[in-house]
Nucleic acid binder design. Structure first.
Lengths: 257, 257
DNA sequence: CCTTTCAGTTAGTTA
DNA sequence: TAACTAAGTGAAAGG
């Protein structure tokens, strides 16, 4: 990893290093005192203060204050970068993008530390227990929802009404529409499921049940659950993990046998 | 600004400095090779790679890859931090929070640079041309929407139907409900306005017009505009700025005279 | 404190 | 490319 680190670089040196970094698409960190202006979809001003500025290898820009999760100002990837160093008491970096036309400019009055480098990161990122994985788990072990449930097809196209998550039959022969939510089910989840069911009812006379499967049900959605005659089954993500893990191990053992 | 910067600190030194930084609620930067695990609402794994880790003075944590606007892993403010340095070939930082119970742990295999400091940032942040400011501009200069428009009251309470943005009368004596959107108006904006109007219609026999004021109208919303018998007036944020600026200058001149 | 809505949302997926 | 939808959404506003 190429690396440049300098405490209190003079503006002239900082400007040259920034030019070099932008040219070579390097990762840039600046801790310093600056004010920031943004002009675009909205516009904002940020008075002088000490912040961390990050300019990434894809041209995205982040201005972070000492607290808070979100950047106070930013620019998405692929924006054009320019350094401006004229008078000796300030150095300005401008990040512009078209579509939409937006500009963030950072005027530094002082630079405490500056670092540039080329980060190499090919590590794979995996987010587990997505809605798709919950579905996978349920299809593998339908008992997660109900004893005797038999999935019919993964997603039944319902035209403009959208898609169901799982379409199944219960032990009594009723049709069952299962709506999966990774987050606590809301009123929206219920009305969505209700729409699915109404659409299906027009095509068949078989009795239909609607089940919302989620780790939780918002209290505000509870009255609607009864009003729409739907059912709710609690399914914590951990249980899905167990099933998916078990399935993988099963697959492995099958492979080994 | 107190400042510690070290290139390639040994893990032992890094661990001590991290302990000190966490204790004193300092701002921490680490550029290094790490893998990251997250466990909470969902769970994720991130294999080894070079990243920037930020730990802020309020206990928020950000793990940034060399590209992309968003952090690949994070932790919101106020989480508990712990350093773990046992074997000599890795150093682990764990950030945990309750409610919801979530944990991010970063295992460093190599630290290229580490910096800690105390950032002081009292600079005021101001986001201009919000929806409220568009409203302010329209109330000051109703012609921005239509010649002869006379605002009646800022927000008319409509019970559960929500709030209108501006309630007015046009030159022909019709009631006018103005819905302001800072962003391009969507189908949702139109149905929302329609709900307002339907609610008002139950209380009066006067003819009512509905106008959506926004910088743009989504193409997908156009058919609905006609179907719901609503009107659309384009209002770019710049024009609001001009009005607000003018108003401020007027105020100033009033003050000076 | 809980719920709802908004965001300079961003990011991914699909028509 | 444009429109739609989800997010470990986060953050603010309202009840």
């Amino acid at each position: 990893m190429s690396l440049y680190v300098k405490v209190k670089p003079p503006f002239r040196e900082a400007a040259e290093e920034l030019e070099r970094a932008f040219r070579t698409r390097s990762f840039v960190l600046v801790i310093g005192t600056c004010k920031v202006d943004y002009e675009g979809r909205a516009s904002s001003t940020l008075d002088l203060g000490e912040r961390l500025v990050i300019i990434k290898q894809d041209g995205s820009v982040l201005v972070h204050r000492p607290v808070g999760y979100e950047p106070v100002n930013w620019q998405p990837p692929k924006c054009m970068l320019k350094v401006n160093f004229e008078d000796s008491d300030s150095l300005t970096v401008t990040a512009a993008r078209l579509e939409p036309r937006e500009t963030v400019s950072m005027e530094f009055r002082d630079i405490a530390v500056m670092a540039t480098c080329n980060l190499k990161d090919a590590g794979e990122f995996a987010l587990h227990v997505t809605e798709a994985q919950m579905k996978e788990a349920i299809l593998a072990v339908p008992e997660l929802v109900e004893q005797g449930l038999r999935p019919l097809q993964e997603e039944k196209s319902l035209g403009e009404a959208g898609f169901t998550d799982i379409y199944a039959e219960d032990s009594a022969g009723n049709l069952v529409v299962v709506e999966i939510k990774r987050n606590p089910a809301t009123k929206g989840s219920l009305t969505q499921l209700k729409r699915y069911i109404d659409t299906i009812r027009k095509r068949t006379d078989r009795p239909i049940r609607g089940i919302v499967v989620a780790p939780d049900l918002r209290k505000s959605a509870q009255p609607l659950l009864h009003k729409l005659q739907l059912e709710y089954v609690m399914l914590p993500p951990e249980r899905c993990l167990v099933v998916l893990k078990g399935r993988k191990e099963t697959k492995l053992s099958e492979f080994l046998s």
